[in-house]
Design a protein around this nucleic acid. Structure first.
Length: 297
DNA sequence: CAAGTGCCTTTATC
DNA sequence: AGATAAAGGCACT
């Protein structure tokens, strides 16, 4: 099946899959293979043509956020030269509508890990506890359900490389599987409510709650702040804060809750209702820029 | 190549 | 409130 993208609605598949928001896509030749919402499918892009197999057009449009009016969103967040630079460099980057359960577990696993490691953990979990599907003779795995993970052991989870995150994943799976934590209810709640509910889960702090809100709950005002975003703010937005505060967070490696909320609320106020989009562009731009600095040294 | 550092942080404790 | 330590283990330098 093919889909021709509107010229007015930029989309870059590669960027969208590689910017660090999703972890389980694999490129084989020209095609990207992945599983979303228990559907194994493949996609490739040539210019404005998006080609896909084993999935409906409706799903593809929804999953990749093609229904978001990207130019309108970008217009709102380009408040200064730096973010404009990032937006131009990363044209066509879109926020994916992730499956809520997979997203939650992914970001619990993502704490204090680098992206290659996160990918490894999630592939391990899926291979071990997910359901096998075949596409083009290639084995793909669905993401394990809460019920399935609830019946694993800490040992088995640790064997997937989760380390101390194993107990957070197990506990969350048990709460969701038993109904003690109603994950579906999050979808009916606003940003503040959903964020607070998520924070009740062990292993979910402010940053993880913001990532889940942004990537799976369509709360575009969420503004996750990680080490990279801290760097971005120190480098380009320091003038929005007191000198002492900037000095303090520059020296310390981790943010206190109060520090986090200060950076987070700055992002939300400054970039507006699509702050999450700004975060994604700034985050990825900072990462690719830092790679460039190193190699051209 | 070994060893050190850092990792899309959170929790526990003081 | 805020500081501090500890937490798998892998990837990168």
């Amino acid at each position: 099946m093919k889909l021709v993208l509107e010229p007015s609605q930029p989309f870059n598949l590669e960027l969208t899959l590689c910017c660090g928001q999703v972890f389980r896509w694999e490129k084989i030749g020209e095609w990207w293979f992945g599983v979303a919402d228990d559907k194994a499918f493949k996609v490739r892009q040539t210019g404005r043509t998006l080609e896909f197999e084993n999935v409906s057009q409706d799903f593809v449009e929804k999953y990749f956020g093609l229904d978001n009016d990207l130019p309108a969103i970008l217009k709102q967040i380009t408040r200064d030269a730096h973010v404009t630079h990032a937006v131009k460099a990363l044209e066509g980057l879109r926020i994916i509508r992730q499956d809520l359960w997979e997203c939650l577990i992914s970001y619990i696993c993502a704490t204090y890990k680098n992206i290659p490691s996160i990918k490894q953990m999630l592939f391990n979990l899926s291979r071990k506890f997910g359901c096998e599907t075949v596409l083009d003779g290639r084995l793909l795995y669905t993401f394990p359900t809460a019920e399935r993970l609830a019946h694993t052991s800490l040992k088995e989870l640790a064997e997937c490389g989760l380390g101390y995150r194993a107990r957070y994943v197990l506990e969350t799976a048990q709460k969701v599987a038993s109904g003690e934590f109603n994950i579906e209810k999050l979808k009916t709640q606003n940003y503040g409510e959903a964020r607070n509910a998520l924070l009740c889960l062990k292993g979910v702090g402010l940053k993880v709650a913001d990532c889940v809100s942004l990537f799976a709950l369509e709360k575009f005002e969420a503004f996750p702040v990680d080490v990279w975003m801290k760097r971005v703010i120190i480098r380009h937005y320091a003038n929005h804060f007191e000198e002492d505060f900037v000095k303090k967070i520059s020296l310390k490696k981790s943010l206190t809750k109060a520090d986090y909320e200060k950076l987070n609320s700055f992002g939300r106020k400054y970039f507006g209702e699509y702050a999450g989009y700004a975060q994604e562009y700034l985050y990825h731009f900072e990462r690719i820029s830092s790679k460039g600095e190193k190699s051209s040294y």
